[in-house]
Design a protein around this nucleic acid. Structure first.
Length: 268
DNA sequence: ATGGCAAATATGATTTGA
């Protein structure tokens, strides 16, 4: 005897995840395992750290996935892996001349998915911070037109900004510094004001929830982390969001990325 | 007070990350 569960007609479930893998070369086995064992339909990756000519396209397509990617040597690089086809693939911000490969977008099952690796910024008085702020400015302009064009949209990725003090394990130590500065938070608030919602905060969540932990000082075991990997949703997509979780399991693996996946599920 | 880990790079000392 078996029990059958019927989904309502015209109702499909979609799970989108974002994961900064800190080198896809090192993490490819974990990524393949994740897609093969977890109910994830779309996996957005950041910090692939490889040029397109060495991207493991064959391994991913052999496993049955659709893939889009744009990368560079050593740093940055983004990719989208999905179970169903991707259309209207956009690589990089169209309004920002940028040698660094930090953004890729695709439409999957009627949802516009934008995978971003926001600039780290290093320190507030550095050139890199200036670059971070101008990159975020260009992202804002791009999102304005993307949101207008795509009612169902998810902007996901490593934002390198902790939205609030509760997203920082030790706010008194980090306060005002890179990743938590008022300037960066204002830029994030600007994106939110375009009509986006932080999916994680749509639901009740455990206290001290983070998506990144320092490799040093046993950061993960001490839960010395930051929540900087975000899933931002337009209203009409947020209305269909049934859960958003941080999956800490991959951070427990051997040779883990310092980030762990964040997942959101939708009833489309 | 500082660095402490990991990844990549013509691989051995440096840069970057967050």
């Amino acid at each position: 005897m078996r029990f059958f569960f019927y989904a309502p007609q015209n109702m499909t479930s979609l799970t989108i995840a974002t994961w900064n893998v800190n080198s896809l070369k090192v993490r490819l086995p974990q990524v393949l395992d994740y897609m093969q064992t977890q109910p994830v339909d779309v996996l957005c990756l950041q910090e692939t750290k490889m040029t397109d000519d060495v991207f493991p396209l064959q391994a991913l397509t052999d496993a049955g996935f659709h893939v889009s990617f744009t990368g560079q040597k050593t740093y940055n690089g983004v990719a989208i892996i999905s179970r169903t086809p991707q259309t209207d693939i956009q690589k990089n911000l169209p309004n920002f001349e940028d040698p660094q490969q930090r953004l890729i977008a695709a439409t999957i099952q009627g949802v516009r998915i934008i995978c971003a690796y926001v600039v780290n910024g290093q320190a507030l008085d550095s050139d890199k911070f200036e670059y971070k702020m101008s990159w975020l400015g260009a992202l804002h302009a791009y999102m304005q037109s993307e949101i207008a064009a795509h009612p169902k949209l998810a902007l996901v990725g490593d934002f390198n900004i902790a939205p609030e003090d509760r997203d920082v394990h030790n706010p008194e130590k980090w306060i005002g510094g890179n990743l938590v500065s008022p300037q960066e938070r204002a830029a994030l608030a600007g994106l939110i004001e375009l009509g986006l919602t932080d999916a994680y905060r749509l639901f009740e969540q455990p206290e001290k929830s983070y998506s990144w932990w320092d490799y040093r000082q046993m950061g993960f075991r001490r839960n010395a982390g930051l929540r900087i990997d975000l899933i931002l949703l337009t209203k009409s997509l947020a209305d269909t969001c049934s859960s958003c979780v941080i999956d800490k399991e991959p951070r427990r693996h051997e040779q883990p990325s310092d980030h762990t996946p964040v997942l959101a599920t939708f009833a489309l």
